[in-house]
Nucleic acid binder design. Structure first.
Lengths: 194, 194
DNA sequence: TTTTAACTTGAACATGTGTTCAAAATCAAA
DNA sequence: TTTGATTTTGAACACATGTTCAAGTTAAAA
């Protein structure tokens, strides 16, 4: 046995995630990364293999963080649908200034890389799909709890919410008008309850 | 007086636009461009100044193309709202396979470049705003023509449509499920008519 | 204290990048 | 045909990029 890793793997991935989320895959150079995570090229490549593999881990880290936050909002709100709406408000409006980017990191990945790095695209797709599945589960619970109509279709509503989430976050980057977006979120969830 | 430009400026910008739209700003090298528009570095820089300026012209070209298409759909459909819906279906579903990317080029620009190239971001914002204004005009005509309710607010509806358009196009890239997206578009416009 | 296997370092490499510029080619006017 | 301003060409430049690897450092085990 010998030296065990000096760095904290999760911490490093988190820091890399923040930088990747801000600047995107191509605009983040390995030099930028070296500085952000305070590791030298050799160590980075020994630990992660390549820039792309580190990015993959960063994507998963991002996705997990979002999923945890959604869970917390549901607990705080005390109801599935209330939690979802709080989550929307948090992501689209409250956190959009403190986050590295207004736009979802999975969406940024999907729009930036395409032919090159097909694995990054596939992973982003997969993680987005998981998010939608999670939305559907939550909406099913809302249906079971009587928060939404008996005839509502959780899968269709989940897809609808996914489109809203993606669209709203990008729109926020365009317009910087939190008040109108807050109203839009209210309308979206009012329509779901009907 | 001497030689006049050999190349067709609009044609060159259009070709550059298609490549930029497909690959994004950073992933399109000037070598790629040289091949696509069949011009040598010196000519390109004499004609456009820099890669960024050529991209700016490409953005405007893209935006004009979309605006023209919207106009055509309105004429074909014979009504403002019908034209808008046809435009949505065309962009999100029909053309998404033949276009260089499923995603709006303005949105791609906005999510890819940020701190670097602030002028590209500002131009994308401006062009997106113009699109929304156009939507609002069309919706006002729909209101005047009795296609939508008297109490409807064209500005709010235009914002809503913009979010849908952005979200749907990215969702199409994620899921590749045209049938469900077609239903979603039907629902969106059914709700507007109410 | 010495050994040893794992980890860390940073200079170096090969390639790709946006851009420049002197030389060559072009063609309307003289 | 000659002139001459303009356009085109492509080699070259300076720098940035992802990645490698031999040498150095570390600390647990012997």
């Amino acid at each position: 046995m010998a030296n065990v890793a000096k760095y904290n793997r999760d911490d490093v991935i988190h820091k890399a995630m923040l930088l990747f989320w801000e600047k995107g895959y191509n605009s983040t150079s390995t030099r930028d990364l070296q500085q952000a995570i305070d590791m030298r090229p050799g160590s980075i490549y020994a630990a992660f293999g390549s820039k792309e593999q580190l990015y993959r881990e960063a994507l998963v880290c991002y996705s997990q963080g979002m999923a945890e936050m959604l869970g917390q909002r549901i607990v705080s709100a005390g109801s599935p649908l209330g939690g979802l709406e709080a989550f929307f408000r948090n992501v689209v409006i409250d956190q959009c200034d403190t986050n590295p980017s207004e736009v979802c990191m999975l969406v940024k990945t999907l729009t930036e890389v395409s032919d090159d790095h097909p694995e990054l695209m596939e992973l982003s797709r997969e993680l987005l799909k998981r998010t939608e599945d999670r939305f559907a589960d939550i909406l099913q619970q809302a249906k079971d709890g009587g928060e939404i109509a008996k005839h509502a279709n959780p899968r269709i509503l989940a897809r609808h919410l996914q489109v809203q989430m993606i669209g709203l976050r990008i729109y926020m980057k365009t317009s910087r008008n939190p008040d109108s977006l807050s109203e839009q979120i209210s309308t979206i969830f009012a329509n779901i309850k009907r």
